[in-house]
Measured scan of single mutants.
Amino acid sequence: CHSECLGNCSQPDDPTKCVACRNFYLDGRCVETCPPPYYHFQDWRCVNFSFCQDLHHKCKNSRRQGCHQYVIHNNKCIPECPSGYTMNSSNLLCTPCLGPCPKVCHLLEGEKTIDSVTSAQELRGCTVINGSLIINIRGGNNLAAELEANLGLIEEISGYLKIRRSYALVSLSFFRKLRLIRGETLEIGNYSFYALDNQNLRQLWDWSKHNLTITQGKLFFHYNPKLCLSEIHKMEEVSGTKGRQERNDIALKTNGDQASCENELLKFSYIRTSFDKILLRWEPYWPPDFRDLLGFMLFYKEAPYQNVTEFDGQDACGSNSWTVVDIDPPLRSNDPKSQNHPGWLMRGLKPWTQYAIFVKTLVTFSDERRTYGAKSDIIYVQTDATNPSVPLDPISVSNSSSQIILKWKPPSDPNGNITHYLVFWERQAEDSELFELDYCLKGLKLPSRTWSPPFESEDSQKHNQSEYEDSAGECCSCPKTDSQILKELEESSFRKTFEDYLHNVVFVPRKT
């Protein structure tokens, strides 16, 4: 048989008469490798580009789960590009990614509803959504962080984005990388972005840091009482949809009607710091009717980097990364020049730590249904340095008659930039024990000054392991946590139920 035959053949030295091919099969003959313009397919066939392209389009058009959109890589027609490569849609070739590779997620039936953290986790790592997304989240724990972890990498949506009755959302900033909504599939009414009845939605994105392009379709905003109209108009300008909307697409009466839409800028007039305090004062603000001013709200939190936005980490279910302080308005003076500047002394802060701070007014709604208010920009203030805590785990070892090696770990709280350490030492008198000992005694162990690591005695271990207080009263049991108490109650309830079950099964009433 021919060298490319495997198993047997019907005619000697003829690659077209093989029972099976050793390498690849091409047009009725066995070959060692697939010549151009053919590609290896499933490690035994040679196919042309049209064959591989037909497989790709067949799966793409069917949208069946589990099928493969075949691509070409290293002269092979394979189910998908290997790690580190992405497909070129024009020629199906796998090309190296520039940075992290995109991950295209194809949605069944063309859309997916995100109504819980669990459903959001199914899209973790996706960068391109081939379909439409509907966000409908009523509640949950730590929602802002969970949504950002699972949806934060999405850069492109081919269909539309719909935010509907998501009472738990305060902001859409968890879509931190969303840059493009194509609108290839539109919501009824030709809408590519749809926001309806979101009672706590206050911000779409921080438009000073976020760009969003909507290729096709219109915007729809109705019944978002805490979303200011200025935020919607800003989205029109940034996304390129200005002029597409009709009169009733953006409701003037049901958007922002319960919001404090600040239209003035508060400026800080005085800032002073110490290692654990920050004193702030800002310019006074009074609405047209000074009785509408209820006070100020001061927001602050630790910020290692200057990239904080107002609604980071917030949701309507209680999660809030900001510390909020309510401040009463100052006494009002008739003389504008003698107006008191409101302020606040922030206490209990960490030394040498940068804080993000902003302040906003708290006002009631005027009778004319106009909203007044003022808010400052987010500023960054760093507390002063102070003395560091003591170095940890000092170790001293003498390696000769004239040297001592000293080692330690950095302090747990540096409280500033540590530039150097101060080492103090003092000579001590020799131990009298060394002169009084009889060095001729056998088995004498000389006193040693070398360091030995501390260890816990058996008594201390027994005390720590004991669940009861000892007789001397030195140790006591740790208080039980809520989960331990709940577990004990469940076990007790189970024992009672099981005992009742045994009584009912074992003891049967005697027939009379």
Rank of each mutant, 00 (worst) to 15 (best):
L392R: 12
E187P: 09
E237C: 05
T118R: 10
D206N: 08
L161R: 00
P411L: 01
C126S: 01
C126K: 01
R164H: 05
F290A: 03
A303I: 08
G243R: 04
F268Y: 03
A259N: 03
D257Y: 12
A259K: 13
S401I: 15
K301S: 11
F296L: 10
L280K: 00
I114P: 00
S400Q: 01
L266S: 02
I114L: 07
L204Q: 02
A303Y: 04
A259P: 11
E122C: 12
N200T: 02
L293T: 10
L108E: 11
D384V: 15
Q216V: 09
D377M: 12
R347F: 06
W352H: 15
L294E: 04
G243F: 15
S119Y: 07
K226Y: 04
E146G: 11
G125H: 12
F175N: 00
N224K: 00
L180G: 07
L147I: 14
F290M: 14
Y223L: 11
G183F: 12
D377L: 01
W286G: 13
A195F: 09
Q199R: 14
F358K: 14
S239K: 09
D292Y: 06
N340H: 12
D292A: 06
T127Y: 05
L169N: 01
S376I: 01
G139S: 13
E302Q: 13
L133N: 00
M297Q: 02
D367Q: 12
W352T: 05
I154P: 00
S398C: 01
E156Q: 04
K177P: 01
T254D: 10
V238W: 14
D257W: 09
T185Q: 10
G343V: 11
I114T: 01
E310H: 12
E283Y: 03
R281S: 14
W344C: 10
V128A: 10
D289F: 03
P342T: 07
W322T: 03
L331R: 06
R281T: 07
G140R: 11
T309V: 11
V363I: 05
H106S: 11
T254G: 13
F290S: 08
W207C: 05
R247H: 07
P304K: 04
D206G: 09
I327G: 02
I405N: 06
R332L: 08
L392Q: 07
G189N: 05
T323H: 15
A316L: 15
L252V: 12
F290K: 02
N136F: 12
V381A: 08
S376M: 01
K226G: 06
H106G: 06
K209P: 11
Y191R: 06
L345Y: 12
G152W: 09
Q306P: 14
E156R: 03
A168R: 15
P342A: 12
V324W: 07
W344G: 09
N136A: 03
V359F: 02
S239N: 06
A144H: 15
K253Q: 10
A303P: 02
V363F: 02
P411W: 01
T185D: 10
D377S: 14
P329S: 07
A144N: 03
G217D: 02
N399A: 10
A145W: 05
D326N: 15
G131H: 01
D289S: 12
S171R: 08
P351L: 02
V170E: 10
L172R: 00
W344T: 10
F358I: 11
K209R: 06
W322D: 03
Q258S: 12
I188N: 02
I278L: 15
W322P: 01
K407P: 00
K267H: 11
G256F: 08
Q216I: 05
I181H: 00
P288E: 11
G243P: 02
L331I: 08
C261R: 05
P304T: 13
S132Q: 13
C126N: 01
Q314V: 05
I135Y: 01
N150Y: 09
K253V: 08
N130E: 13
K253M: 07
L345A: 02
A120S: 09
E262R: 13
Q354E: 05
M346P: 00
W352E: 07
A120F: 05
L123F: 10
Y372K: 12
Q306L: 07
Q199K: 13
N211Q: 14
Q245H: 05
P388E: 01
I378K: 06
M235G: 08
S166L: 12
I214P: 00
G240Q: 13
I232V: 04
S376G: 03
E310T: 02
S260H: 09
I378C: 05
T254M: 14
E236N: 14
S274K: 12
K375V: 04
Q306M: 09
F220T: 08
E155K: 13
C317E: 04
D326R: 01
D367P: 05
D206F: 05
N150K: 06
V104M: 11
K301M: 13
P351S: 07
Q216N: 03
N200G: 03
L169G: 04
V128N: 15
Q245I: 13
I157P: 00
H233Q: 10
L107K: 04
R179M: 10
S319I: 07
P391D: 03
Q121C: 10
P351V: 12
T371D: 04
G240Y: 13
I188V: 12
F290D: 10
Y160H: 15
I278H: 00
Y305L: 07
L153S: 11
S401E: 14
N307L: 11
K360V: 06
T353L: 05
E122W: 14
S239E: 06
V359Y: 03
R370Y: 08
D312N: 08
K277S: 04
Q121N: 13
T364D: 14
K375T: 14
Q245D: 03
T215F: 07
Q121K: 10
K209W: 08
I357N: 00
L180W: 15
K112Q: 06
I135A: 03
S116H: 09
L362G: 15
S260R: 11
T127E: 01
L362T: 02
R369C: 09
A144I: 07
A259M: 08
T118G: 04
A149P: 04
Q354P: 07
T213R: 13
Y191E: 10
N340Y: 06
L147Q: 01
T364N: 15
M297K: 03
Y305K: 00
L392W: 09
S171M: 03
E246H: 05
T113Y: 13
Q403M: 12
L161C: 07
K226S: 05
T323I: 14
H222R: 11
E310W: 15
D384N: 05
I135E: 01
H341K: 07
A303K: 01
